[in-house]
Write a protein that binds this DNA or RNA. Structure first.
Length: 343
DNA sequence: AATGCGGGGAG
DNA sequence: CTCCCAGCATT
């Protein structure tokens, strides 16, 4: 139970955070707009993605798809192309579906209610809270990894952030700190503090605006927070590909919308017996995903006639492309790298 | 409640 | 090498 006095203290900490943000907050491109479309795009791009990594993608994406209707009417492949290299490709597929969803359900106008925003494909509680607070002033904490880290440290709270109830738990904590107005700025302030000061490792507690209030800091136990229990060990996985080509032409096919690299393009994974005589050099590349360590063998198959390429493509449903055209497709990172270094 | 999903940067 | 980042969907 929180007493009234404690509650007043919480609000005081929230005000300090807000004051710090106004002077030291990051000057990011999407901070200058309250267009829910742009905020939506940036929130999706920066899920599990650091700002530096996604900033170019954000600019390119907004430039090509400046509004909901443009995105809704785009080709699926082109949306994926603008997501190339970002990872978590279902985010791009969901963005596309959600844009079409808005055209149908909301007449092309981005919904303003938290509950309606939450219905959009790929939008969860965090993103719905971020959009509705930043764009529409709703007093809802956008609880993400930064909230977990900052709050668990400030209160020296050992609530396991891997627990599925952590979101609700830290939401209630954050709500007590949240000012009535400027909810969006408060959420952004927490993100900036978590990113610039209260970092996962080597936090800059000396210059933290909350260091007088931070229990973990004052106890000398910053390293103990946040508490996170889950540890998933990556599995090893081997993949085999054949770079089947005649001159500049080679074969690709789109992946299914399941497993990894949803709907991205890849090379054939097997070849007919009759091609075995044309198998040349093999390259092995290692690639780490969050839960998998991939070893990929890519065999170069140089066919002597274009007819062999055509027949195989036709029978097995492959697309014939070349290096220049393939830039218009989205490939998994290791295959993208392979294409950059063809002998 | 647990698992899968990318890629990159920091220590 | 390990950890983690403006999380979400699925089971």
């Amino acid at each position: 139970m929180k007493t009234k006095k404690q509650n007043a203290d919480f609000l005081h900490v929230g005000e300090k955070l807000l004051a710090w943000y106004k002077t030291y907050g990051r000057d990011l491109p999407f901070r200058s707009t309250k267009d829910p479309y742009k905020i939506w795009i940036c929130e999706i791009i920066f899920q599990q993605t650091r700002i530096e990594q996604g900033l170019n993608h954000y600019h390119n994406f907004i430039s090509r798809f400046p509004d909901i209707e443009t995105l809704a009417n785009a080709e699926n492949d082109e949306v994926l192309l603008y997501w190339k290299g970002l990872g978590y490709y279902s985010r791009a597929l969901n963005l596309h579906k959600a844009a079409q969803q808005i055209m149908i359900d909301h007449e092309g106008i981005f919904p303003e209610k938290y509950e309606d925003i939450l219905q959009l494909k790929g939008v969860g509680k965090y993103t719905a809270a971020a959009i509705s607070s930043i764009c529409f002033g709703a007093k809802i904490p956008a609880v993400d990894g930064n909230f977990y880290r900052v709050l668990s440290r400030v209160f020296a709270d050992d609530f396991d952030v891997s627990n599925s109830k952590a979101f609700q738990y830290f939401s209630e904590l954050a709500l007590q700190m949240m000012p009535e107005k400027q909810a969006g700025s408060f959420n952004e302030a927490m993100m900036d503090l978590g990113s610039e000061i209260c970092k996962p490792r080597n936090p800059k507690c000396e210059v933290c605006p909350l260091n007088q209030d931070c229990l973990a800091f004052n106890l000398g136990k910053i390293q103990d927070f946040p508490v996170k229990s889950k540890k998933v060990k990556p599995q090893d996985l081997e993949l085999k590909y054949y770079f089947v080509h005649f001159g500049d032409l080679f074969l690709i096919k789109q992946r299914k919308e399941d497993f990894i690299w949803k709907k991205l393009y890849e090379f054939p994974v097997e070849i007919p017996e009759s091609f075995s005589g044309y198998v040349g050099s093999m390259k092995t590349v290692s690639h780490k995903l969050t839960h998998k360590n991939l070893t990929i063998h890519i065999y170069k198959v140089s066919l002597p006639t274009i007819k062999m390429l055509n027949d195989f493509a036709k029978e097995q449903g492959f697309t014939i492309t070349n290096l220049v055209d393939s830039h218009q497709k989205s490939f998994p990172k290791p295959l993208e790298n392979y294409l950059k270094n063809i002998d």
